[in-house]
Design a protein around this nucleic acid. Structure first.
Length: 238
DNA sequence: CCAGACGTTGTT
DNA sequence: GTCTGG
DNA sequence: CCAGACGTTGTT
DNA sequence: GTCTGG
């Protein structure tokens, strides 16, 4: 991803239940979630630090100090390597971390002039949480705009042949601590370690996912063998 | 000191 | 080529 | 991330 | 708001 993912309804509800977030989401399964749109996220409620809440945030972070209109759609990604140094991320990393539930994400591999989308999932297609940051921006007209960004890391061995960055996947054991307001940045950085390739799987999918107007199961259908993805599959061995 | 940027991605 | 919208 | 637009005037 | 460049 850095910029496109999927989230199945049953996965979201299962994860919310495990986190103790009240209520069942009415969200329908999504197969093509894109930047600039509202996405589901879980964050620590305020002022009750022990309560998690499900919120809808626009994907594209706008720092609180931004002037007038937000530039473009905001910052879609935040490099794990820069979280503490960059003014745009520092405060959010300190105190506004969130979880972005996902069933899988897409990355495009350049193939000459064209690009082949690949679907990345955990083994057994289990859902997971991506590490995110959120912000609340006060618009000139007094309105509030709540936004978020997905943190990225260097690629693991599975991603390496496809792309040079990947979203930060939080291991299950650190999910609660990622939301803990008392967590220290030194510890938090460890949570963003490159996720083990051995716990993931990937396969080329239909170019139907290229266009955001397509948001259905066709997006995760196997790629046409015509597209040239087969050569990559042969080289697929960790 | 003030002014102006503040970010990532990919591609060339 | 570059920006915007989804 | 990819796809698709990218512009103004005046007239209907 | 805070950092960087001049």
């Amino acid at each position: 991803m850095c910029c496109r993912y999927l989230l199945l309804r049953e996965h979201l509800n299962k994860m919310l239940e495990q986190l103790g977030v009240r209520g069942v989401s009415e969200l329908a399964s999504r197969y093509n979630i894109a930047p600039g749109t509202k996405i589901p996220a879980v964050r620590t409620a305020r002022p009750k630090a022990d309560v998690r809440e499900l919120v809808s945030l626009r994907w594209g972070l706008v720092p609180a100090w931004s002037k007038n209109d937000e530039p473009g759609a905001g910052l879609v990604n935040a490099r794990a390597e820069s979280l503490e140094g960059k003014p745009s991320f520092r405060e959010a990393f300190d105190s506004r971390r969130c979880l972005i539930p996902a069933s899988g994400f897409y990355e495009w591999k350049a193939l000459g002039r064209s690009r082949q989308p690949w679907l990345f999932q955990l083994r057994d297609a289990q859902p997971f949480f991506l590490a995110g940051l959120w912000e609340s921006w006060l618009a000139p007209d007094g309105g509030r705009l709540e936004t978020c960004a997905v943190i990225t890391t260097e690629p693991n061995q599975l991603m390496q042949p496809i792309h040079h960055r990947m979203p930060a996947i939080l291991p299950t054991r650190v999910v609660e601590r990622w939301l803990d307001p008392a967590a220290k940045s030194a510890g938090l950085r460890e949570f963003l370690a490159i996720f083990p390739a051995s716990e993931m799987q990937a396969r080329p999918v239909s170019s139907r996912v290229n266009s955001v107007v397509n948001d259905d199961e066709g997006c995760i259908a196997a790629a046409d063998t015509q597209t040239g993805a087969s050569d990559d599959q042969l080289a697929w061995d960790l």
